[in-house]
Amino acid sequence: MRSAAEMQLDRAVNEIEGFLLWEAEKDRARTRAEAFCAGLPWLTDTQRREVELRYCQDQREASRAYLERIATRSAALRTEYEGVYRALRRRLITAFLSGTVAMVALTTVAAIGLGAR
């Protein structure tokens, strides 16, 4: 079992990683917006800034929706896999215990059979 301090550290690392990934996503959106606007040379500086801003907002919204879908699916898969793991573990323990009981029974029968001679 993990300690509370380890779990808190993991949460902090996850938050930092999430922050860094989101900042990288924002940078990618800015880069893509600039590249998009570079193909529109007739824009004024003000129009270019407005298009870049709207492009970045749209990209961030799309990225956020995508990440939320991934997070939801990941949670569903985790729940599903944990259920499968528990079922497999139960089967393994049942098989082990059944084998142990069978071995004890065979050993007992063999010991009784040898003692009766």
Score class of each variant (00 low, 15 high):
Arg2Met: 03
Arg2Tyr: 08
Ser3His: 06
Ala4Ser: 14
Ala4Met: 15
Gln8Met: 08
Asp10Phe: 03
Arg11Asp: 10
Val13Pro: 00
Val13Asn: 08
Asn14Phe: 13
Glu17Ala: 07
Phe19Val: 01
Leu20Arg: 04
Leu21Glu: 05
Leu21Tyr: 05
Arg32Leu: 15
Gly39Gln: 12
Gly39His: 08
Trp42Asp: 13
Trp42Pro: 00
Leu43Arg: 00
Thr44Leu: 09
Gln47Trp: 05
Arg49Phe: 03
Arg49Gly: 04
Arg49Val: 13
Glu52Trp: 06
Leu53Gln: 03
Gln57Glu: 14
Gln59Tyr: 03
Gln59Val: 05
Gln59Arg: 08
Arg60Leu: 13
Arg60Met: 14
Arg60Val: 12
Glu61Arg: 12
Ala62Trp: 05
Ala62Ile: 04
Ala65Glu: 05
Tyr66Leu: 09
Tyr66Asn: 10
Tyr66Arg: 07
Leu67Met: 10
Glu68Cys: 02
Glu68Phe: 03
Arg69Val: 06
Thr72Phe: 01
Thr72Val: 11
Thr72Asn: 04
Thr72Trp: 02
Thr72Glu: 02
Thr72Asp: 13
Arg73Ile: 13
Arg73Glu: 15
Thr79Cys: 04
Glu82Asp: 12
Val84Phe: 10
Arg86Phe: 06
Leu88Phe: 13
Arg90Met: 15
Arg90Tyr: 11
Arg90Ser: 11
Arg90Pro: 01
Arg91Gly: 12
Arg91Val: 10
Leu92Tyr: 11
Leu92Asp: 12
Thr94Lys: 07
Phe96Ile: 14
Gly99Thr: 10
Ala102Trp: 07
Met103Asn: 08
Leu106Tyr: 03
Leu106Pro: 00
Val109Tyr: 06
Ala111Glu: 06
Ile112Trp: 05
Ile112Arg: 05
Ile112Ala: 10
Leu114Ile: 08
Leu114Asn: 04
Ala116Glu: 07
Arg117Met: 10
Arg117Ser: 10
